[in-house]
Amino acid sequence: MREVVLDTETTGFDPETGDRIVEIGAVELMGHVATGRTYHQYINPERAMPQDAFEVHGLGDDFLRDKPKFAEVGRAFLDFIGDAKLVIHNAAFDIKFLNAELKWMNLPQIPWEQAIDTLAIARKRFPGSPASLDALCRRFKIDNSSRTLHGALLDSEILAEVYLELIGGRQPDFALSTQSSGATGQAAVQWTPRPRATPLPSRISEKEAAAHAEFVSKLGDGALWSKV
């Protein structure tokens, strides 16, 4: 199962009032394991960077001026994500911006059901508790000390660790612990293997069993297998 953990940085809060994406970062997971394949792109927003956004992201007009416009990278971005589930913290925000940019390019929109919202998962697992990315890092003891500014690729790498904790741990479980449910991609985080109704028959032949018994008999009375 392929998933893409995704984050965007923007000039503000609403694309319909002129705000634009300035950075996209994404990390690929296969079977809940990072593959090392990433997507990272700074983007010229074609507008001045507001001071408050600069203070959050550290991305200024001079830095972004020679970066490609979204129209130049939108197709490559879609090719990278493909039909993978998109793991996003507060998915409604990022999908709103991405779909606005894609609409202006006459490119296909990202379906809401393609997103797994880690904010929704966290609020369901820990009702009433803070559910920001920083708060979840503290809860799961994930090192985010390098997150002095919001950066899309760094945030997506941290979110990948948070996501694996939210769905039941960082060890891969062959996708048995998670399943999508609607637009928010709620996760079933408590999966436990059930015992077989009928035990599997032994694959040891009578000859092999006799040879084993003969071998154990030569080990003496103190042999562990003799006490079983």
Results as ranks from 00 to 15, higher is better:
Arg2His: 12
Val5Ser: 06
Leu6Asn: 12
Asp7Trp: 07
Thr11Glu: 09
Gly12Ser: 13
Glu16Pro: 00
Ala26Val: 08
Gly31Gln: 12
Thr35Ala: 02
Thr38Val: 15
Gln41Asp: 01
Gln41Glu: 04
Tyr42Val: 00
Pro45His: 03
Glu46Asn: 10
Met49Tyr: 02
Pro50Tyr: 03
Glu55Leu: 14
Gly58Thr: 07
Leu59Lys: 10
Leu59Pro: 10
Asp61Cys: 06
Phe63Tyr: 15
Phe63Leu: 13
Lys67Val: 00
Lys69Gln: 13
Ala76Thr: 12
Ala76Lys: 15
Phe77Ile: 03
Ile81Val: 15
Ala84Asn: 10
Lys85Cys: 04
Asn90Cys: 04
Ala92Gly: 03
Asn99Ser: 05
Asn106Phe: 05
Ile116Gln: 11
Thr118Tyr: 10
Ile121Ser: 01
Lys124Tyr: 10
Asp134Ser: 14
Arg138Lys: 13
Arg139Ile: 04
Arg139Leu: 14
Asp143Phe: 08
Asp143Ala: 03
His150Ala: 06
Leu154Ser: 06
Asp155Ser: 11
Ile158Arg: 05
Leu164Gly: 04
Leu176Asp: 06
Thr184Phe: 13
Gln186Pro: 00
Gln186Trp: 04
Gln190Asp: 14
Trp191Arg: 09
Pro193Cys: 03
Arg196Asp: 09
Leu200Lys: 14
Ser202Arg: 08
Ser205Met: 05
Glu206Val: 09
Glu208Thr: 13
Ala209Arg: 14
Ala213Ser: 07
Lys218Ala: 08
Ser226Asn: 15
